[in-house]
């Protein structure tokens, strides 16, 4: 379903974030991407989520090469993912409800159906009672749950979560991890990057490790 083949990613300035990475992820898998800070975890997730394009090699999503897609097709592909960003990217001038509505607006959902889904997603993460609150009025854990609600609201086939428990205390981190686990149990492919020990212990799935941009151990690398 998701296939990386000899992928390299270089940023301006000559920084090489990923080097010759090959990887295949099957539908419904839970993949834990481990590695130290700067190992290339976020870059890998951005490539898998079609947010960035590889400098060389190919990223195939259901057989579609992300480098070969036009802007419109790439946007359509991105709508199939739910992304939990490391820096959250919440809109601080919009209410929790409006933040969650954004993917549905982009997806062109009918208004009433969109509102119903947004409330259901907020309910799922336990934030329905705070739908009118601005993100600034939410705690760190609530903000993270809001990010999760935004990532799941359009029922994506794949959720890409970049350090979803970073900066959370143990209780909140535990709750977030339970949620991610429950989505995977429903058949959603989960790709989670983390260097959090508890996340590594709590989540049961396939583990891959990145070290200085190289995939040092992977259970299903492709040639």
């Amino acid at each position: 379903m998701l296939t990386l083949s000899h992928v390299c990613k270089r940023y301006p300035g000559g920084i090489e974030a990923l080097r010759d990475v090959s990887l295949a992820i099957e539908r419904g898998q839970l993949v834990l991407v481990e590695g130290d800070s700067g190992a290339g975890k976020s870059t890998l997730l951005r490539l898998l989520g079609a947010i960035e394009l590889p400098s060389s090699g190919s990223v195939l999503v259901d057989g579609q090469n992300t480098r070969a897609l036009g802007r419109r097709a790439l946007a359509a592909l991105r709508r199939q993912f739910g992304v939990i960003f490391q820096d959250q990217k919440l809109l601080f001038d919009r209410s929790a409800f409006e933040n969650v509505m954004l993917p549905l607006d982009i997806g062109g959902f009918e208004r009433r159906e969109a509102q119903r889904r947004a409330r259901a997603a907020l309910d799922k993460v336990g934030l329905l009672h705070k739908e009118k609150a601005l993100p600034v009025a939410l705690s760190g854990g609530e903000q993270q749950r809001l990010c999760i609600a935004r990532a799941i609201v359009h029922r994506p086939r794949v959720i890409v979560a970049d350090e979803p428990t970073g900066n959370l205390d143990e209780t909140h981190a535990q709750r977030v991890l339970e949620m991610l686990d429950s989505f995977n149990a429903l058949g959603v492919t989960m790709i989670v990057s983390t260097h959090d020990r508890m996340a590594r212990e709590r989540l049961d799935g396939r583990r891959i490790r990145l070290q200085a941009g190289t995939l040092s151990e992977a259970s299903a690398a492709v040639a």
Binding site: I51, R71, R72, A75, A76, L77, R78, R79, Q80, F81, V83, F85, K89, L91, R94, L102, P103, D105, I106, G107
Partner: peptide, 16 residues
């Protein structure tokens, strides 16, 4: 800008 960039990251087209 933050809103536009986020929208693009989660699949907004140029038209949107």
């Amino acid at each position: 800008r933050a809103e536009i960039e986020l929208a693009q990251l989660i699949g907004a087209t140029d038209g949107f």
